[in-house]
Amino acid sequence: MKELTVISGKGGTGKTSVTASLATLAPNRIVIDADVDAANLFLTLEHEVLEKESFEGGHKAMIDEALCTRCGECLERCQFDAVSEVPDNHDAVSNISGEADTASKGSGTVHTVSDKSGKFVIDPVSCEGCGVCVHFCPADAISFERQICGEKYISKTANGPMIHARLGIAEENSGLLVSQLRQKAKEMAIKEKIPMIITDGPPGIGCPVIASVSNADAVLIVTEPTQSGMHDMARVKKLADQMNAAVYLCVNKADLNPEATDEIKKFCHENGISFAGEIPFDRDVIESMKAGKSLVTFSQGPASVAVKNVWQNVLSFMEKRMDRLT
């Protein structure tokens, strides 16, 4: 089984459009949308959700006002400025504690009143889930529940399963969620003898990207011929090298700046990157997205032809690599 992850560094270079087409061209594969906090693949691949499961992320600390002695130990120990002391407002106290907490939720500002002792609250957005306050609270007044941070899906598409997710609003642990999606995909691939997993990665180089690339056989970098695209491509290539993945690259909207496209090809040549092709700017890419279809399903235009060529190249690169490994 082979694993290919599509990444870019810079956002908006066309990762999802390319992935949707590759997932349409591959006869038997699992496709994963690992851009869990801004997932788009489901908008462009016709699918039917078969299974839903909630995603349990990290823990969050929450102070039980009835037990709290207002000693301030939690505020002193927290390294994430998540605890604050707020004026003891009678309206808030008369509410049940859950509602009182919502009033302070997400304001992000630390309100400290020194003249008289207020109550302590934990901002759930700032809480890192480290449990330090929970451990050191002398009154055992802080609960530490595992949070439901989103939903995971297994869907059916024309040529294999799609595994995707939706991270809750302002929730964390995107790296953990990506790892779980990939683990699920691997289990399914082995069980159902599916030869390939294609992952649509998130932008950037941070934790969900690392989780998308680790242990993948190869990455396909989708870049664009701009100064920003080239800057970010170089960083993401360095990351792929650290993680021992083979690196393939294609240039999207290549004709918008042909000189820059040539520079990228030179970079590939000098850095051991297999060049998988150029995709021209083509309105059909946006039109296919608007129609909710992959580009290769929707159009026979120049970009569609170019993406098919990229797929053929990627396939042959991967076969060569497999030969070398075995």
Partner: peptide
């Protein structure tokens, strides 16, 4: 003005509501 743009815009608007 694309489906991807709208989808992700709406998610960000929800985050900003939460952050006030």
């Amino acid at each position: 003005p694309t489906p991807f743009g709208l989808n992700d815009l709406a998610l960000t608007v929800e985050v900003l509501k939460k952050l006030n």
